[in-house]
Amino acid sequence: RKEMTAACTPRRRIINLTSVLSLQEEINEQGHEVLREMLHNHSFVGCVNPQWALAQHQTKLYLLNTTKLSEELFYQILIYDFANFGVLRLSEPAPLFDLAMLALDSPESGWTEEDGPKEGLAEYIVEFLKKKAEMLADYFSLEIDEEGNLIGLPLLIDNYVPPLEGLPIFILRLATEVNWDEEKECFESLSKECAMFYSIRKQYISEESTLSGQQSEVPGSIPNSWKWTVEHIVYKALRSHILPPKHFTEDGNILQLANLPDLYKVFERC
C-alpha cells in the first residue's frame, strides 16, 4: 500500500510523520478485503446518474454509490500519497476573496446577518489561508500566491479535474471546517474536505460537464463527458487505489441488486 500512486510524480518523498502513518493504519484496520476484491475485478455496466452506477462482479449485479466511493478513493490517495502530488495549474489565478464571496452568497454556506458582513468574512478567509499557504503547498500541492490567488490544485489521478463549480464552497470550508490546531486532526479533516471537493457530486455535474483533463479519443470531437470520466478514470482507479471500509457493506453505498443465475431462471419461465 505504501507504493500506491494514482498520479505520476517525478520522485517520491518518504513521509514518516506519526500522524500520517496513524491515518494510514486506520484505513488498513477499517478495510474490507472482500469489497476490495469485488472492486478490483468488477465489470463496469454503466452510470445511472452522477451519484449511482451499476457494476457486475462474477454472477452478481451491484449498485454502487459513485459519490461515496470516489470520496473515499480521493481521501485514501491523499493519505497514502501525502506530500507526493503533482499540481493542476489553473488556467488563470482565482482570487480567494472572490471565491469566498461566491460561497457566502450560496445558501449552502449557511451565512446569516449575525455572522457579520460577507466582505469582512471573505477578507478573513483570504488572510487565514495565506498564512497556511506554505503547508498547503508542501503537503497538498494546493498553491496560493502572495496576492491571495489560488493558482494550483493537487493532481490526485492523472487526467482528472475536480468539478470546479464546487471550488468556492471548498475554499470556505478549508477556513471553517478544518481542525487547524492538532496535526493528525488537521491532516485528516483537510484531506476529507479535499476528497469531498474532488468527489463526483450530482449538484455540480450536468450532462455537459467534463471532468477530464483530456479530449476524447476521436479527433475533432467534444470533450469527454462526465460519464466517460466516471467509467474510464474514476472506476479504473477504484480497481487498484481503494481499500473500501467495512461500513460500506452496511450503509447502502454498495448494494447487491441481483444474482444473475437467479434472473436467468426467471427469464426461462417467461
Rank of each mutant, 00 (worst) to 15 (best):
C8L: 12
K130S: 11
G116R: 06
L155G: 06
A7C: 13
E72Q: 09
Q215I: 08
S141L: 03
G252C: 11
R239C: 02
P223G: 13
P154V: 01
G252P: 07
C270Q: 14
A94G: 05
C186F: 05
I79N: 01
R239L: 01
S216Y: 10
V87N: 09
G116F: 08
G110K: 13
I157P: 00
S19M: 03
L136E: 01
E71S: 07
V218Q: 15
E250C: 08
E127V: 09
N49G: 11
I233T: 12
E113A: 09
R239I: 01
Q30F: 11
E123L: 09
Y264Q: 15
E72F: 05
P223I: 12
E188A: 11
I15T: 07
D262H: 15
L69V: 06
R173W: 01
H247P: 04
K236N: 09
P163F: 06
W52I: 14
F140S: 03
E108K: 08
R173N: 07
N65I: 02
T112D: 09
E193G: 02
L64A: 04
A6G: 07
Q24K: 07
L211C: 11
K2N: 12
Y62I: 08
A83I: 00
T112A: 09
G213E: 15
G120K: 07
D105E: 14
N49Y: 02
V34Y: 11
F248S: 03
Q215E: 15
E185W: 06
Q76S: 02
L255F: 06
W52G: 02
I205D: 03
F140E: 00
I151E: 09
I242T: 03
Q58N: 07
A122W: 00
K246M: 09
K192F: 06
V48S: 03
L260H: 11
E185N: 14
A55F: 07
F187R: 01
L23H: 02
I79R: 01
W111L: 06
T67A: 05
I254W: 04
F248A: 03
S240K: 15
R239T: 03
L167Q: 00
I27M: 03
P162F: 01
W228P: 02
N179A: 10
S212L: 14
Y124A: 14
E193P: 00
P10A: 06
S216K: 10
C194S: 05
K236M: 06
T9K: 08
I233P: 00
M196W: 04
C194K: 02
G31Y: 12
P223V: 10
C194A: 14
D98Q: 09
N49L: 03
L35P: 03
F170L: 08
R269W: 05
F140C: 03
L255Y: 05
R239K: 09
A100C: 09
A6V: 07
E119T: 11
S212V: 14
Q30P: 03
E146P: 09
G46T: 12
T176P: 03
E123F: 12
E183P: 04
A100R: 00
D262Y: 12
W111E: 04
G86I: 04
D138K: 05
T5N: 06
E147H: 10
L150Q: 01
R36C: 08
H241M: 04
S240A: 13
F97G: 13
E165S: 10
S43A: 13
K236H: 07
L167Y: 02
E119L: 14
L61A: 05
K132G: 03
K265C: 08
H32M: 08
V45D: 01
P168I: 01
S19W: 03
P168A: 10
C47K: 00
E134F: 07
E193S: 04
L63F: 05
S43Y: 14
R89M: 15
I14M: 11
T112P: 04
Q56C: 15
L156R: 01
L17D: 05
G110S: 13
R201L: 02
D145A: 04
S206D: 15
L69Y: 02
K130V: 10
L121Y: 12
T18D: 12
R12C: 14
N149T: 12
R239F: 01
K130W: 08
N28F: 13
D262K: 08
W111S: 05
E185T: 11
G220M: 10
S191I: 10
G220A: 15
C186T: 05
M101T: 08
I171S: 01
C8M: 14
C270E: 14
I171C: 09
I77K: 06
P223Y: 15
F197T: 02
G166D: 05
S22C: 08
L99M: 10
I205T: 06
G148R: 06
D251A: 07
P95Y: 11
N16L: 10
A237D: 02
A237M: 12
G148P: 02
I254S: 02
K192P: 02
E182C: 14
V161C: 14
P95R: 09
L172Q: 07
P219Y: 09
V178H: 00
L136M: 09
E3M: 10
Y124R: 13
Q51D: 09
A94C: 08
V218E: 15
V34Q: 11
T5M: 04
E37G: 07
E231V: 02
S206T: 15
M38C: 07
R13T: 06
I169Q: 14
M135F: 05
V234H: 00
T5S: 06
K265N: 15
N149H: 13
Q56R: 15
T249F: 10
H232Q: 06
Q214A: 11
S43P: 03
K236T: 08
I169R: 14
E146H: 10
